[in-house]
Computed example of a mutant assay.
Amino acid sequence: MALTYHILDVFTERPFGGNPVAVVLGADRLSTAEMQTVAREFNLSETVFVLASTSPGHTARIRIFTPTRELPFAGHPTIGVAVLLAELRSPLGNGHGDAIIALEEEIGSVRVGVRTRAGAASFGEFDAPKVANPVEALSEPEQIAASVGLIPAEIGFENHKPTLIRGVPVFAYVPVANLEAMAKVRVAPQHWARAFADRGILGVYLYTRQCVRVQSAFHARMFAPEIGVPEDPATGSAAATFAYVVQEFDALPDGMHKRAIEQGFEMGRPSAIALTMSVSRGKLDGVRIGGYAVRVAEGVLQV
């Protein structure tokens, strides 16, 4: 069976930055085991398989795999596949185009607005799934510091402390004092399991207010070794639930708030994630994640 695939770099306006994702089209005849094998072959943080939609009003159904497991939802694959489908199905006529791509994901329906412009990277933005569970404190700073190769004094800044959010997936959020400490972060396997994996935490998202780019509000790194992602250049799903961490500690006033998150710099793949938060009566009532995506490769997969 021959299937067309594309590789896109997401959360970047330029090729070879951001987070790459492989998108396999027409994958309806592949089994789950075959999808997992293909994802392991690409060995990117995620590979997306596009299938025919099963619900009216949807553009496509998608399934998302890391090299070791399937995910019910992920941010950069959602934007990447939406941008690709918009570009393939709605070629530019006058140089401008806008589309709504409705995706069936394992978590449910996700609608992505895509803006295309001739000669420029396309931009996609989606409403993030809401998180019902509150922010939980992680109260072992020594253990957390040891698991990421830092000392306890380098964990935390201002009133920000380590937290856990049981969203989809489950992320730990670890504030780091500054960029110097962020550059030293390394996974320490002998401490990682006790601090994170044994609690069902899928990924660990470290962040600081010190940034490389002046337009950024936060600098982040994300590690998920348990699912075959040693480090991720840009993590839309983690940024989506990070909004709840921001509201927990920064107590944003009612209204719309935009924050730019930079990630991937330590990996040589600079990424920019647009986080938009709507606050009403002191609580988050909406989160949107946006970013650019560019196609960098395509080919035929023999399965």
Rank of each mutant, 00 (worst) to 15 (best):
M35P: 06
E13Q: 12
Q190N: 04
T276M: 06
Y244P: 01
N159T: 15
A183Y: 07
G18D: 08
G149K: 02
A99E: 13
S147N: 05
F196V: 03
E154Y: 01
P152G: 02
P15E: 00
G299P: 02
V10R: 06
K161D: 00
A183H: 09
N133C: 02
V204F: 10
L252K: 07
Y173F: 15
D28G: 05
H76F: 08
A145D: 05
L3R: 14
V114Y: 05
R117C: 11
V246K: 00
T47G: 03
A272G: 02
A239R: 08
A27I: 01
F126E: 05
G149I: 06
P152E: 00
E104M: 09
V174I: 15
P141A: 06
A197Y: 05
A132Y: 03
H191Y: 10
F265K: 11
R295E: 04
H257Q: 09
T163M: 07
Y207T: 15
Y292R: 00
A220N: 15
L44M: 09
G282V: 03
E41R: 09
P253F: 00
A183V: 11
F242D: 10
M222T: 15
M182K: 12
L252Q: 08
A33D: 14
L92C: 09
I201C: 00
I227H: 10
V24F: 01
D98W: 02
V279Y: 02
I201L: 05
G236I: 12
T4Q: 10
V110L: 09
P72E: 11
D250W: 14
G156V: 09
V303C: 08
G17A: 14
A260D: 13
G268R: 13
T54M: 03
S109R: 14
G236E: 11
R288K: 14
I100G: 06
A145C: 04
G75C: 05
T54V: 04
A22W: 11
A239G: 03
I165C: 08
H76S: 07
G228V: 12
A260Q: 13
V296F: 00
P20K: 11
E140I: 00
R281N: 10
Y173E: 13
L71H: 06
F16G: 03
E70A: 11
I7Q: 03
R295N: 04
E158Y: 09
R29M: 00
E231G: 15
A272M: 10
R69H: 06
A82K: 11
A102H: 02
K184L: 11
Y173V: 09
